[in-house]
Design a protein around this nucleic acid. Structure first.
Length: 459
DNA sequence: TTATGTTTATATTACG
DNA sequence: CGTAATATAAACATAA
């Protein structure tokens, strides 16, 4: 059966910054723009906290992006603002165990710590967690720019890095940004300047190179200790505009009505989920890792500013986690024999192993759930399957038929890894298929939100 | 000229 | 509705 590990090291092996930069410069036009600076000195200083103006939510979110980091920074305060003695900038590519969490070698949101505290719904959500942001060109990583900067800094193993290094790290680790237009770099610069978490360290007069260095204000880590910060919000699904034409996807306008068409969670589902959480006491054991990696995979979190971001993250977990990379290549997107229901069943039944060989635990009798008055009886074979089905039925019985299966489908379509050497083939397939998301939605709505019917109809 | 950095403006989304 | 956080765009300045 399928088995996915979230702890695999980066397969590319370790690359020094210089090597990385040379390689990167040869790979993409955008990387050609990256200016290397291999002589960045290391320094570390502590600055006073100023909590005005700018957000620090990314700090807490960073713990999501980097599950290896502690939930409570006070337990390992060195993780922020620590003095690092490595002269070799480390990215996740270098397999640094303290850097970004990886799944099959890519940065993903892979928190699993509390999975067992929640039943099959958790498993369902969890399995959808791992979007291969390293190779997926289409889906914008669910990390704020500040988070990305922070990740780059963390990965660099230095206390100060250059802007170009940040560019480099992001493009190396998030394929989306290799293909996106360069406005994101403007946003990065904007974030660095505006966000008080980032401190500019001027270059020494005798130091060659352009621009200064940037470091994290360690004082903001202290804010993290207090748990004062919530998660950020990002748009639900952001498809790489540079590739939308190839996908025959209408760009999502950033206008007053753009939110209406997003593949997010509709208010009904949000309300249902809120009630579900209340019914199950899911909040009692809540933490950011759980929220990112498990329950929210299929059930939208709606509390806090993180809700929106979590929606996106959740919805980015649809297809790629379900198959090893090689299988994904074989299967390809939306092949005719793709069986969504069986796939879902596999996940729900615990056959799909997602946690380093640790199979998903089926629901036990002791974990019966009552949701909106519907008693869910777990434990029947196939374990867990009936539970989620019943819950879904419960939803539908409560007029939530527009549950976010549409997002499930659409994202599954979009999220399969898209290595650059495969782009042509996939692009051709997509061009021939001419799958229009709006059309998909229309069909899906007409079919009452049943993904199997959607697929059957489309194929 | 280009990369870098600052600032302003606007839009979106969610929370209280 | 006000506020906060974030994203995006753009104008502008500065340094290499």
């Amino acid at each position: 059966m399928l088995s996915l590990s979230c702890t695999d090291p980066w397969p590319e092996g370790s690359l020094g910054l210089e090597e990385e930069l040379v390689t990167a410069a040869a790979q993409t036009e955008q990387r050609d723009r990256v200016v290397s600076n291999n002589n960045d000195n290391i320094c570390c200083s502590v600055v006073n906290l100023d909590d005005s103006l700018t957000s620090l939510q990314w700090l807490q979110e960073f713990s999501i992006a980097c599950p290896d980091m502690p939930q409570h920074a006070h337990q390992q305060p060195h993780l922020f603002g620590r003095q690092l003695d490595s002269d070799t900038a480390a990215s996740p590519l270098s397999g640094d165990p303290t850097s970004i969490s990886v799944a099959r070698g890519k940065p993903t949101a892979t928190p699993y710590s509390r999975m067992q505290s929640l039943p099959s719904i958790v498993a369902h959500g969890h399995c959808l967690d791992e979007v291969d942001y390293k190779t997926n060109v289409h889906i914008k990583p669910p990390y704020s720019y500040a988070t990305l900067i922070c990740m780059a800094m963390q990965a660099s193993k230095k206390t100060k890095i250059t802007l170009s290094w940040i560019y480099k790290w992001i493009t190396d680790n998030f394929c989306y940004y290799r293909h996106a237009n360069l406005t994101w770099q403007n946003s990065i610069r904007h974030s660095l300047s505006l966000n008080k978490c980032f401190i500019k360290v001027p270059r020494q007069k005798n130091e060659p190179g352009k621009g200064g260095f940037w470091k994290i204000d360690p004082k903001y880590a202290e804010r993290l200790l207090s748990g004062a910060y919530k998660k950020k919000q990002v748009p639900a699904v952001q498809i790489n505009p540079a590739l939308q034409n190839r996908l025959h996807i209408q760009p999502q306008p950033r206008g007053p009505c753009s939110h209406r068409r997003k593949m997010g969670i509709n208010p009904k589902s949000q309300r249902l989920f809120r009630e579900f959480k209340e019914a199950t006491g899911a909040d009692q054991n809540w933490d950011t890792h759980l929220g990112e990696g498990t329950m929210l995979g299929s059930w939208p979190e709606v509390r806090g500013r993180g809700g929106y971001k979590r929606e996106q993250t959740a919805l980015q977990r649809c297809s790629s986690p379900l198959f090893p990379l090689d299988e994904q290549k074989e299967i390809g997107p939306l092949k005719g024999d793709f069986d969504w229901d069986s796939l879902l069943d596999s996940v729900l039944s615990g056959e799909l192993n997602l946690e380093g060989g640790k199979p998903l635990r089926p629901i036990t009798k002791e974990e019966d759930l009552t949701v909106r008055g519907t008693y869910i009886t777990p434990g029947d074979a196939p374990a867990g399957t009936a539970d989620i089905h019943e819950l879904v039925e419960t939803q539908r019985s409560n007029d939530v038929s527009d549950y976010d299966e549409e997002a499930f489908l659409t994202r599954a379509f979009l999220e399969s890894p898209w290595p650059e050497d495969e782009e042509k083939g996939r692009s051709d397939f997509l061009s021939n298929s001419t799958v229009n998301l709006d059309q998909l939605f229309e069909v899906g709505e007409a079919l009452g939100g049943n993904p199997s019917l959607w697929i059957d109809t489309l194929l």
